[in-house]
Design a protein around this nucleic acid. Structure first.
Length: 279
DNA sequence: AGCTCGACCTGCACGC
DNA sequence: TGCGTGCAGGTCGAGC
């Protein structure tokens, strides 16, 4: 999309959980996309008019790039039907057409996704963006940063990892995988990781595990459970490498552990972990 | 301020 | 086949 001009925006179904702004189409049509960016789980597209489009995939949202022939670059299993391939499936809510005939289709069965639009200066102060924590791969993510931010928290570590004000961008899958990798119990009170000898080591493991899991997941093309695919229609592969997520009742993969992965519910979300390996 | 819960919406897997 | 239940990658606002 970068450097290309939008010729048309179809809002087929603007009633997402948060309605798509009615002027999205008129403000985008004729504009050139000068920059694509990401902050936490939000996608940002800046135009040569100084507008920024804010987008979020929610739980089930996906973007697919359709070439002028109507097909994604790699037609995956989700594109067997003609309707979907044409970008006119029942869940294809937004279709953005570029000058070269490329179409970008936003599909989202659950409609938890989000579009918003604001001038660049305004977007910097957008309520959804202010207060976000640091990125998982930012070098500012250090044991010291976590110690500082965790010390006032009594909630379970897993729940706090999902708090976007601390580390911005971790979701339920990767929070589980990171805690397994760091050998930390999801039930441990987050504040008990504040500094003091052992805690510093644990925080070091947490930082290392966060970088490792996120890096490996990106390299594997993400995790495809139901809806997720890349913009080319290709599915991710990281789901084959899960150590704990969605593996309740299956054996722990740690050599010599012999334990079983368990599932529990924390703040309404499933947590998967090994109670032998994670303390 | 921090915590937990319910709400938002649709589809799917499961058991009966 | 059909129906009810529970669960799903996220986030926000209410109420404690």
């Amino acid at each position: 999309m970068e450097g290309k001009t939008v010729v048309r925006v179809d809002l087929r179904r603007p009633d997402l959980r948060v309605p798509i702004p009615a002027d999205l189409a008129t403000r985008l049509e004729g504009a050139r996309i000068v920059r694509l960016d990401r902050r936490a789980k939000y996608l940002l597209a800046e135009t040569d008019r100084g507008d920024v489009v804010l987008m979020h995939l929610g739980m089930s949202g996906r973007f697919t790039v359709l070439r002028p022939n109507g097909l994604p670059t790699r037609a995956g299993r989700f594109y067997h039907s003609n309707a979907a391939a044409a970008g006119t499936g029942p869940h294809d809510h937004v279709v953005i057409t570029l000058q070269d005939g490329t179409r970008i289709v936003y599909a989202d069965p659950r409609r938890f996704g989000l579009f918003d639009l604001a001038h660049a200066e305004e977007m910097e102060r957008h309520r959804l963006l202010t207060g976000l924590g640091i990125e998982p791969l930012d070098h500012a993510l250090t044991p010291e940063y976590l110690a500082q931010r965790l010390k006032s928290r009594r909630a379970p570590l897993k729940v706090v990892l999902l708090d976007q004000r601390l580390i911005a961008g971790l979701g339920n899958i990767y929070a589980c995988e990171i805690l397994y990798r760091a050998r930390l119990s999801p039930r441990r009170a987050a504040g008990t990781l504040a500094p003091s000898g052992q805690a510093t080591m644990r925080l070091g493991r947490l930082v290392a595990a966060t970088r490792a899991v996120i890096t490996e997941a990106i390299d594997a093309g993400g995790s495809s459970l139901r809806d997720y695919a890349g913009t080319d229609g290709e599915l991710g592969y990281f789901q084959h490498r899960f150590d704990v997520y969605d593996r309740a009742g299956e054996p722990c993969r740690s050599i010599g552990c012999g334990g079983t992965v368990r599932r529990l519910v924390q703040s309404g979300r499933s947590t998967f972990f090994c109670s032998r390996c994670q303390r």
